[in-house]
């Protein structure tokens, strides 16, 4: 059984999975709430005479800035859950439903099965990221149009002074963000995947991964814990935003991306070692 065939089977299962549907619906719901939120903010700021455009400090919202904010908020709170829901159920879901013993009763290598599942999870993460960014950009374009991407000091933490990125370059940066963002999320997916091998029920593995992510994210944001922050994988995951800096700090980006890669590789190797030795007793 070659890896490609296994991946095709995994994709078929994933395509019809309810977790994927729930995840995608929740992302669409999130974007629609963001639109509603921005719209009501604009109405309030302009006394009701604006449809959507509104001054934000010194610049204006447009479809690109809307997409960036939507991506930023989704990335911190929604995307991790959407990815973990799938990654954390890859093995534990099969164990829980009894399909893992049916699969492994077939002439399938355990390491190969694990690898195929992980590669499909990576592909899924990239697709979710790409679809989310595309959806935001298109929605932003149809609602308010594009333009240069305005950057302001604030929650994004990208600039100290207001600035902007030209529209075409900004669109390319969104393209880059699909890669940096999905690579960053794959780190969390690897954590969830590891728990999925460790535990026999998807609820536990998904919850464990979400808890680890949120605990480390919260602790990492506390100023006086800055000494321990560099040891958290969540700190490195933040590198995805660097592609939206006016000048991309490639060295810093490569450093964090490599550290994420090391986390992913280590977790994957640990997952394979555990899975190879695991007795399937459920």
């Amino acid at each position: 059984m070659n890896l490609f065939t296994l991946m095709r089977i995994e994709l078929l299962k994933l395509r019809k999975s309810r977790s994927v549907t729930v995840g995608l619906v929740s992302l669409v719901f999130f974007v629609l709430l963001m639109v509603w939120g921005f719209y009501s903010y604009a109405m309030r700021q302009t006394g009701g005479d604006s449809i959507f455009r509104v001054a934000v400090e010194t610049g204006y919202f447009n479809g690109l800035l809307f997409s960036l904010y939507s991506l930023y908020f989704a990335f911190n709170f929604v995307m991790p859950v959407v990815v973990v829901m799938v990654a954390g159920a890859q093995i534990s879901g099969e164990t829980h439903s009894g399909t893992l013993r049916a699969i492994l009763s077939r002439p399938v290598g355990r390491a190969r099965l694990l690898l195929s599942k992980f590669l499909v999870t990576v592909l899924y993460t990239w697709l979710v990221m790409a679809a989310f960014i595309s959806f935001n950009l298109l929605l932003g374009f149809f609602l308010v149009g594009w333009g240069d991407l305005g950057l302001y000091p604030g929650p994004l933490g990208l600039v100290d002074e207001p600035g902007s990125i030209a529209q075409n370059i900004a669109l390319a940066r969104f393209g880059l963000a699909t890669l940096s963002g999905s690579w960053s999320l794959v780190t969390l997916a690897a954590v969830a995947f590891f728990f999925s091998v460790l535990f026999d029920t998807p609820v536990i593995s998904v919850t464990a991964a979400v808890l680890v992510y949120f605990i480390l994210t919260v602790i990492g944001r506390v100023e006086f814990f800055s000494e321990i922050k560099p040891y958290f994988f969540t700190t490195d995951m933040d590198f995805w935003r660097l592609v939206f800096k006016p000048q991309i700090p490639w060295r810093e980006l490569a450093y964090s991306a490599s550290r994420c890669g090391i986390y992913v590789f280590s977790l994957l190797v640990a997952s394979v070692l555990i899975f190879e030795r695991k007795d399937i007793t459920t």
């Binding site: 299962k13 009894g98 013993r101 077939r106 002439p107």
Partner: peptide, 26 residues
């Protein structure tokens, strides 16, 4: 083999399940 209760993907049809498991067996 069928070990204990047969495990299937409940959201897929019987045909799709057989297609998947037979593919795993060659």
């Amino acid at each position: 083999a069928v070990v204990e209760a047969p495990g299937f993907y409940h959201h897929l049809s019987g045909w799709e399940n057989l297609r998947i498991f037979s593919a795993l067996g060659g």
